[in-house]
Design a protein around this nucleic acid. Sequence first.
DNA 1: AGCGCTGCTATAACTATGCTATATCAGATC
DNA 2: GATCTGATATAGCATAGTTATAGCAGCGCT
Lengths: 226, 226
Amino acid sequence: MSRDANADNGMRPALIEAAARLIATEGAAGLKLRRVAEEVGTSTMAIYTYFGGMPELRRAVRQEGFARLATRAEQLGESDDPVADLAGLGLAYHQLAMSNPHLYRAMYMEQPLDAVDAAAGSETFNILTAGVQRCIDSGRFDRANAVELATQFWAFGHGVVALRLANLLSAEDALNCSASALLNLFTAWGDDRDAARRSLTRTGRRAARLDLEAATGAATRRGQSD
Amino acid sequence: MSRDANADNGMRPALIEAAARLIATEGAAGLKLRRVAEEVGTSTMAIYTYFGGMPELRRAVRQEGFARLATRAEQLGESDDPVADLAGLGLAYHQLAMSNPHLYRAMYMEQPLDAVDAAAGSETFNILTAGVQRCIDSGRFDRANAVELATQFWAFGHGVVALRLANLLSAEDALNCSASALLNLFTAWGDDRDAARRSLTRTGRRAARLDLEAATGAATRRGQSD
DNA sequence: AGCGCTGCTATAACTATGCTATATCAGATC
DNA sequence: GATCTGATATAGCATAGTTATAGCAGCGCT
């Protein structure tokens, strides 16, 4: 009996975690029943008792991915520049996808999402809509339906990510393309073109700073470096 | 010996066609070695003699899909409204993807494209770039790098399609979102806003007319209905 | 305590899938 | 006409997901 992290306790999360790790490291094809079981140190039956089968395990991994994405988006916080914050949401989306391409593919691209998955996916969209609404309320964007604008933003951002994942767009091209297109969209939505440009560069700088902090060490917790 | 469409002759195309049909009707998971073989009326060895294995068969199906897409884009032709033609390219892309979601997913989303696939995929992008260049040359768009503009267009269009395939966007929302965003982008690229609007409605009408013709019958060959 | 019930786990077996080895056969070449 | 080449059919192997079954731990009840 070699049970480490199971009992009636953390078996389910452990299986999800192992499955997510397998997908992340080896792709969707690397997620095999027997493999997950042996990673967790249990038998193959565990997947059936806790999930019902592999499809349900995969779904649980997707849900976990959506939850992580929403968490990441929420912890970004709000500065006094709502347009920069909006661009930051897009950038975070992009970075998360690039740092975990297999998981992202499993979440959005492997199959049409059913109602449950779509609900989880829409949660992040609501965060995006709120970000757009802030831009409208602050007067940077003209009054408009925030959902419609957010949809345009989302479609573009998702497209860039999809092309990146498909290996059809280089990192550099993605950056240039995004900067130009977002500038165009923000301007069309009512923002001053120069103000929009400043917000975009602000987002870029902030991202670079966060990257630096992350690279330097665990300095993210303390606000020491500025 | 029940060989119908093989010999050293049409075996390869027959296998590709059967494989594409299986993907189209049952999804990527429905493409199984033995299934393809029995559809064509041969043994499983045929896949190995003509392709080397299932991965290579899948690749051949992707290439076939890219070729069909390029053909479709080229046969669209050029009217005297290059902006409407450009929008028409995007619409055709969308429609082809929606009419064959499984194949489209297999082409763009299942895995990062290798060099061979990326080359085939870029072919359609070149058509798009040419369409943008026409808009620039005609004076509708400001002088700019056609590739950069085409990339923005492509990213957005691909994003809409990806969200549609993921079941995260309804047909209606996709239409509204595309119309607004393209209007914004075209205007930002130098086109007169009202002219851009007219071009977009023109594309919509043309698409509706083609749909009607297709629904009515094979009237596409003859120009009888108008 | 003893009993039995409930639910999780391990093992083994079943089916299907991709792939490989091998024998057979058709057509080409000299 | 003999031989050689290349494609095909058949059979078999390894691995995948899934299912059936037996065992076992924990719990409540008498």
